[in-house]
């Protein structure tokens, strides 16, 4: 979560003291990546922009919250019952890629290599923060795999301590179902050189080496 200091200081614009301008400015200032100055710039832009453009934007925001919901199957954001990926029959139904967040689906799709389906967990296992399996879409994942079409589950959780823990937990549940379980490779980025790689990258690359 982004931490923002919402207390008013002498350098804050005069409209932070209230009124409609202040309300809009405060809303903009809460958005990720938007500081007080950027919020001020956006506010001036909205004031100067065509009324139709601003109203269109406001309506789009309202519709966004009313019509976008998680896909019934993979839990990625969608406008329909099934998202565009789940409703694509040309995809490989034997492959299922498990990711933490909907943003990870977009990142993987951008790579343009993967042709299977996805499953969005909605977070990662973080026992210390009270995030257990019951807060993730684990049950729905197991149901999908039990349907029998999936042959390989790719655990694409982040390569962090908690991401690895989540992958371990999922593999302990999926192993009895008889599917192949894989984890995304990690190590050296393409186009880099060994000289500048850190020890962790090199260790990962050596551990995950493959035969040619």
């Amino acid at each position: 979560m982004h931490m923002k200091n919402m207390t008013k200081s002498a350098s804050d614009p005069i409209w932070t003291q209230g009124g409609l301008l202040g309300r809009v400015w405060e809303h903009l200032n809460r958005w990720p990546g938007i500081g007080p100055k950027s919020a001020e710039r956006l506010l001036f832009y909205l004031l100067a922009a065509d009324s139709s453009e601003v109203i269109d934007f406001a309506q789009a925001l309202v519709e966004l919250k009313q019509r976008i919901h998680p896909c019934r199957q993979c839990h990625h954001w969608t406008e329909d019952e099934l998202c565009s990926i789940c409703s694509d029959p040309k995809r490989d139904s034997s492959l299922l890629c498990v990711v933490e967040q909907p943003r990870d689906v977009i990142a993987l799709e951008r790579a343009g290599v993967y042709r299977g389906y996805y499953h969005v967990l909605g977070g990662r296992l973080a026992p210390l923060e009270g995030i257990g399996p019951e807060k993730l879409t684990v049950d729905s994942l197991l149901r999908r795999v039990q349907q029998g079409q999936v042959r390989e589950v790719i655990l694409a959780t982040n390569p962090t301590f908690e991401g690895d823990g989540t992958a371990l937990y999922l593999s302990s549940l999926l192993a009895p179902l008889g599917v192949k379980i894989t984890r995304l490779a990690r190590g050296l980025p393409s186009g880099s050189s060994l000289e500048f790689a850190n020890s962790a990258m090199l260790a990962d690359a050596l551990e995950g080496r493959r035969a040619l």
Binding site: F161, D164, G165, L168, Y169, S172
Partner: peptide, 8 residues
Amino acid sequence: LRQSLQAY
């Protein structure tokens, strides 16, 4: 710690 759930 990343090789067994119990260790994790």
